[in-house]
Amino acid sequence: MMAEPIPVAMGQGSSCWGCFQSLVDMHLRLADVLPLLDIKYWQAVVDYKLEDLENYPDKSIVVGLYEGMARTEEDVHLLKLMRQKCKVLVAFGTCSCYGGIPGLANAWDIEECYDVKFRENKTFSGGKVPTENLPPIEPVVHPNSDYVDFDIYLPGCPPTSDLIVKAITALLEGKELELPTYTVCHYCPREKKETPIPEILRPFRGNADPDRCLLEQGYICLGSATWGLCEGQCVSKGVTCRGCFGPPPPITQDQGAAAMSMLGTYAPLEPEKLKEQVPDPLGCFYRFTYPSSRLGRMRIRREELKEASEE
């Protein structure tokens, strides 16, 4: 029996397109899913324009997926438009949920970002910030949830194809999407011995014991602070968890802070030594969640205060 296709829309803010790639990565299962979809908007795949989306009646689209964060004014517009047109709006992927890797740009102010991107960098000098034919850039990256309310958060960098299938199937069937709340550790087969770490090892150092907890061997693994929707695919293949699914529910938690206080338990090291062995704490602990973290929120507030005082 063939059900009536359901109107869906895929919006893309500033991002790498990896999440939608993961959607396409369903392979043969696409054959099952695609006939169920009436794609109303998807910039890179179907030939609808933004004005088409703008002209649909409000809430006429059943499910919308928004990938990426809102770096440009156009992103913000699209995000709000998606909310307006879709009954169920999904924050699709880690950038959309927490700000993601592009959100790390908030660690610098916008002028510094322009310098590196457009004006002066290792391969280029004397450039100008382009203004023509491009949407203006937002001074800071706000988490998408500052602009709109989402119905569902589906994190991951990218969300796994299995997870996407599960989510889309449930949504199309109009069922409640139930996701387990476990962290990555739950899925990790490695043995724990609760031993302190004598020193932090960078991933390229030494040979890790394949059967023991990577963290306890000195490799920083954020598995315990990370939502395990990936079902532990990295840690069971011998790679530390970098935290790409963000914090476990309630996802308003601060993943970076949680990971650091967790590490404090395992690595009772001198602060100086720790500083030396973890050269980039922001990139290590907040790689995917900086804009939505408490620390990141303070930074956003500071930038906005600065802007307000300049005006």
């Binding site: 709340t181 962290t183 550790c185 609760e194 315990s224 476990p248 338990t265």
Partner: peptide, 13 residues
């Protein structure tokens, strides 16, 4: 218990 993923951090802490 629903939120615990057996990471053992608390046991060590």
């Amino acid at each position: 218990e629903d939120l615990c993923s057996s990471c053992h951090t608390c046991v060590a802490a």
